[in-house]
Design a protein around this nucleic acid. Sequence first.
DNA 1: TTGTACGCGTTATCAG
DNA 2: CTGATAACGCGTACAA
Lengths: 330, 330
Amino acid sequence: MSTITIDDVAQALGVSKTTVSRTISGKGRISEGTRARVQEYIQEHNYKPNAVAQSLAAQRTFNLGLVCPIEYEIFNLTYFHRCMLGISEVAAENGYDILLSMVNGDDVTNLRRIVENHKVDGVILTRSLVDDMCMKYLKESGIPFVVIGTCPDPEVVQVDNDHLGACSELTSILIAKGCRKLLLAGGEKQNIISQTRAKGFREAFRRARLKAEESWIYYDTEIRGLIPEILTRALQEHADGIICMDEKLAEAVLAQCREKEIRIPEDFKLASFYDSGFLAHSVPAVTAIDIDDTKLGFVAAQTLLKLIRGEPVQNQHLRNYQIILRESTT
Amino acid sequence: MSTITIDDVAQALGVSKTTVSRTISGKGRISEGTRARVQEYIQEHNYKPNAVAQSLAAQRTFNLGLVCPIEYEIFNLTYFHRCMLGISEVAAENGYDILLSMVNGDDVTNLRRIVENHKVDGVILTRSLVDDMCMKYLKESGIPFVVIGTCPDPEVVQVDNDHLGACSELTSILIAKGCRKLLLAGGEKQNIISQTRAKGFREAFRRARLKAEESWIYYDTEIRGLIPEILTRALQEHADGIICMDEKLAEAVLAQCREKEIRIPEDFKLASFYDSGFLAHSVPAVTAIDIDDTKLGFVAAQTLLKLIRGEPVQNQHLRNYQIILRESTT
DNA sequence: TTGTACGCGTTATCAG
DNA sequence: CTGATAACGCGTACAA
């Protein structure tokens, strides 16, 4: 199927390119007769405008850059994937496509390439480190971009779930159930989201006129590494329960408790971020915060498009989480 | 930082665009003097050719389409992510970028869009269903594409790991260790890879002059669904062990055995596809097939680039797996 | 060794 | 209502 251009269509119909172009874009006035003829021919021969030429003329690529850190591990991946879903939906609706940029740690070369070569109209960053080089570069470059997550820089447009609120609410629930000493097992300390949750954790205690010790909060809890140790200490120091920042950690806790014969929820309570089939069906079923990441990507993409169009935007703190109480915190 | 064009550079230096263009591409002979001057100016002002204009002129987009099924679940995701890594590396090396296309089941609209709009020079498909609509569409469209995985169509360029050999080899090892009745717990039946492995499974038995019953092979084993049932039957019917098609399944088996007090490896042997930290550190550690998916993406991308350049290519069956024997099959 | 002029496929401006 | 014509930014025959 040879690729057909607007000129081919115009010549075949004995009209000018302009007429064809107008038929497609709907701009400008043309007679119903010619419009119909052109439409038909286009349908018939499946003519599609060349996006590259359109881009050149419009000075826009109709591509959104999406940064995916290569070091994402299994957990972040599902998060990333769900975000992509939302982004992809919005992009498609608006005639945009997604250009992927895999960046390795602080090495922004790959991102720089797509930006400097003008291959994208804007960029979405899917996480934010405390000191993120991608963000730094994007700010310098002047290209429109939004960050999914939270960052301290007020100039950066951000879209995030209300992790603070979610963690705070979950913690409060556990406190209400009688817990006085809770643990918080987290992701990378470098990751802002971990710290936001910690803040919510502390806040809940403060609201209950209690104090959360800093030693109750664990970052960089590598699954097979720290969990056993944490539980041993928890047992010695009579902690009432633990909040895990992701499913994998919760899973590890569950396994360790089984091994150490700690009963959940009788001896120890367990709750987790990110609801999943596993948490819902494990024995006991685990209380979890269900977050709609797809929505997050959706809103981020919409925000970026507004930014590209020059419309005013503002940071969004979606409250799209839901706490699902299950047996593990009974 | 206003965007600067080749004309700007040319005028500023009092030379023609051609000279600047040649300096960059290295084609054609120009004096060392002017070359140096141009080089310097370019560095200084950080001039980068506009990729869109280049694309239009060259009639190539320098984009590779990458199809990501939205229904990927956690396991496929890590696989997909690792492939992407390899693809991304090759792409970057060759001045290409990756355009993502998320397709939903049989709905190829998203894929069709990027192909018909000429936004990509070729496409990589990251899995192959028994009856894959994406593949069907790509064949019709005539665009160069390669499939990561195996498909029955000999006209389609394929890059795959030798899953048949891997599964066969692993099965043989278990047979050699005295197993006579083994189970194979798999992914989606619709997924060709599952069937390829089943073939390897059968082959190993045949080589040992034994026969694998079809009832030993389970497809669509949803983790929390079938595993308990399978193990109950295994126990009743005195199976010697099980080979799982992914880590998650192995994990479920491990959990169930603990619950049912089946001892591994004494009562029952366990092996799995896709090595991971979990399998390496679980108790007992699980024998696994380690596969280098990044390499797979790497080779797929290289193959696609050759295809795009019109060079001859052939299907690749990488033997880049490695069986790691651990306690679970002692 | 360097420059001129044209084509790549579209859209937009300005005449008719 | 419609049609030339000029951008958009770059590569490249062809000419000098």
